[in-house]
Computed example of a mutant assay.
Amino acid sequence: MGKSSERRPIAARGSGWARASSAALARSRVTPNQISVLSIFFAAVGAAMLAWVPSTAGLLLCAACVQLRLLCNLLDGMVAMEGGKQTPTGALYNEFPDRIADSLLIVSLGYAAGLPWLGWLGALLAALTAYVRVSGGSLGLAQDFRGPMAKQHRMAVITLACLLAVAERHSTGTAWVLPAAAWIIAIGSLLTCVTRTRAIAAQLRGNT
């Protein structure tokens, strides 16, 4: 991850465990870019568990992998910025692995829900939220990380859906949670595109 004055606000960044972990990684031979790529690995494992292992274990492992993916997203920036390991290609590694990881998990959610088209739509809309954010930055504005369905919100929905699907399976035996989560991510991502676009337009009008 490269040097940037615009970072996604993450409350955990100031916690003691996060600082200690990033400091340890900064002292090691591990690079921020390697941590970013590792997030794709965890997302791929989680996606495989969700789409191809329709069991309680698969759902729980997916939830764990989503959190490990987010941990990588937290630590890569901290190692780069606070650890002084910025690289010229860091900005690319900060964005591209996120788009891949998002797509893997959201598409797999669609397949697990029995609605593949909705998974692909959700992944497309999730990528579009990032495109809108980066477009604002290319126009000289501060990048807008607002929701209602930013990356951390999408991952929270998938994590919660996996846990609730386990409870649903062992209580009612129904299968409503995963389809509901896929719809929430798709609709929420669309709304996020709208809110970010409106905010960019308002700032541009205010600058004229």
Rank of each mutant, 00 (worst) to 15 (best):
H153C: 15
A91M: 01
V177G: 07
M81L: 10
P97E: 02
C62D: 06
W117M: 11
C72L: 07
G137A: 02
G83W: 14
R13L: 12
G122H: 03
W117Q: 13
L68S: 12
G137S: 00
I40E: 11
G90W: 02
A123G: 09
R7C: 03
I106K: 01
V194C: 11
Y111Q: 13
G14W: 14
Y131M: 10
I100V: 15
A20P: 07
K3L: 15
W176M: 01
A18K: 06
A24F: 12
V177R: 03
L25N: 06
V132Y: 09
A202G: 02
R7A: 05
R169S: 13
G119W: 02
S138E: 00
I35E: 03
L75M: 14
A11I: 08
D144E: 14
S36D: 11
G140L: 01
C62R: 07
R133D: 04
G58L: 01
A48K: 03
C162D: 04
A150E: 14
R205H: 13
I187Q: 00
P148D: 05
T197K: 13
R196Q: 08
Q67N: 14
R29Q: 11
T31F: 12
S55K: 03
S103V: 00
C162I: 04
G2M: 06
G16Q: 15
G147N: 15
H153D: 15
G84F: 06
L191H: 02
A44Y: 07
W176G: 14
L121Q: 06
L139M: 04
R205F: 14
V37C: 06
T195M: 13
Q143N: 07
V30P: 08
A18P: 10
I185D: 01
G173W: 02
A91C: 05
A101Q: 12
L190W: 13
S39E: 10
V107G: 01
D98T: 02
D76I: 09
A48V: 06
V157F: 03
L124K: 10
L59E: 01
L178H: 01
T174V: 05
G2W: 03
A161Y: 00
T174S: 05
F96R: 05
L92S: 04
I158L: 15
S21W: 15
M155Y: 15
L38I: 08
N207Q: 13
R7S: 05
P9R: 10
P97F: 00
L68H: 13
P54E: 09
L109Y: 00
A63W: 01
G83L: 11
Q203K: 14
V166E: 02
L50W: 02
A201Q: 12
M49G: 03
G16I: 14
A161Q: 02
R69W: 10
L104G: 11
S36R: 06
I185M: 02
Q143S: 01
A165L: 02
S28N: 10
L38N: 07
S36I: 01
L139V: 02
K3C: 11
L141N: 13
R19E: 12
R99C: 01
Q67D: 08
L139D: 08
A23E: 10
A48H: 08
L160P: 08
L141D: 14
A64E: 05
A47S: 09
A80I: 08
P97S: 00
N33M: 11
S22K: 09
I100Q: 03
P148T: 07
I40K: 12
L92T: 15
A51T: 12
A64W: 07
E82L: 11
I184G: 01
R99M: 04
L70T: 00
T129Y: 02
C193I: 06
I187H: 00
